[in-house]
Simulated assay, not measured.
Amino acid sequence: MLQRLLERVEKAGELDRASDPLQRRVRATLPRRLKDLLHGVGLGHPLHPVAVQLPVGAWMSTAVLDALPGTESAATVLVGVGTAAALPAVASGATDWSELSREQRRVGLVHAAANTVALGLYAGSFVARLSGNHRLGRTLGYTGLAAAGLGAYVGGHLSFRQGAAVNQAEPYLRQIDEGWHDLYAWNELTEGRPEVARIGEVPVLVTRIGDRVTVIMEHCAHQTGPLGDGEITEIGGAACVVCPWHGSTFRLVDGAVVRGPSANDQPVLRSRVVEGRVQASLP
């Protein structure tokens, strides 16, 4: 039933009236460096799944303590820690959400709403416990845990059903056969200007840099944008390609992400030049 409900949410265009202006506000509010930090650029994957560990762990531990006698003080501390630690999780989640597709953002609103309810209930639980009303604090805590559980289910749909924030380029590696594949003649490549080649049906970006060649996946890791249509820029002395869809920026020499919203590096293939021909194979 929940699965069918979320499928209806994906198609609920009326949610865009709230989603679109909120997306613009989040994008306009945060400076680039803070966005990159909240996306998890440099971490190797999005920051949000890491940031949720502390509040969820604290709240789960609170639920265990609330079932035991004489643990009121410890439970109160854990509720306070979890509630305060939720703020970085909210910030990173909102930043990731603002760069999702429209259907993903609709489901993301439900995920955020459930977790906002959970956060409000735990804040109320903390206040009740501080005032000595531990019975009300426990009730609000267990209700908040239920809301957080619902939010986690919706988040699972967002990640594993809709593919939000996962490396969208990685699955294309599975479509490449083993062995070396011929791509280009070396003298057809211009220094620092990427060219698109295909290995079967999979497009790859081939770049001549000095006396070497690099090959990365052409579909952007963030939302499969065509990097072959992207702008070439220099960051930190290295040539980079900017995705034309959302601005994720990757170093051509090794596929490393240098600017978000992608938190994932662009997959790199092994490459070599044999008898004047550029070849590539799986990593």
Rank of each mutant, 00 (worst) to 15 (best):
H157V: 12
H157A: 12
H157I: 04
L158F: 15
L158T: 11
L158E: 10
L158C: 09
F160T: 12
R161K: 12
R161M: 15
Q162F: 14
Q162Y: 13
A164V: 07
A165D: 04
A165C: 00
A165N: 11
V166P: 05
V166F: 04
V166S: 06
N167Y: 03
N167K: 06
A169C: 01
E170T: 00
P171D: 03
P171R: 02
Y172I: 04
L173I: 01
R174E: 08
R174V: 07
Q175W: 10
Q175G: 13
I176D: 04
D177R: 14
E178T: 12
E178I: 09
G179F: 09
G179H: 07
G179E: 06
G179I: 03
G179Y: 04
D182C: 07
D182F: 06
D182H: 13
L183R: 13
L183P: 00
A185N: 13
W186L: 12
W186N: 04
N187L: 04
N187S: 11
N187F: 09
N187M: 14
T190A: 11
T190N: 11
E191F: 07
R193L: 05
R193Q: 13
R193C: 06
E195C: 06
E195Y: 07
A197R: 00
R198S: 13
I199M: 07
I199V: 10
V202Q: 05
V202C: 08
P203W: 11
P203S: 05
V204L: 09
V204Q: 03
L205R: 10
V206E: 05
T207V: 09
R208W: 14
I209A: 05
I209D: 06
G210E: 08
D211Y: 07
D211E: 10
D211V: 11
R212W: 13
R212S: 14
V213G: 06
T214I: 07
V215G: 02
V215D: 12
I216C: 07
M217S: 14
M217N: 01
E218K: 13
E218N: 15
H219I: 12
H219C: 13
C220D: 01
C220F: 13
H222T: 04
H222L: 10
T224K: 02
T224Y: 03
T224M: 05
T224D: 15
G225H: 07
G225Y: 09
L227H: 01
G228R: 13
G228P: 03
G228D: 03
D229G: 09
G230E: 14
E231C: 15
T233K: 06
E234L: 02
I235P: 08
I235H: 02
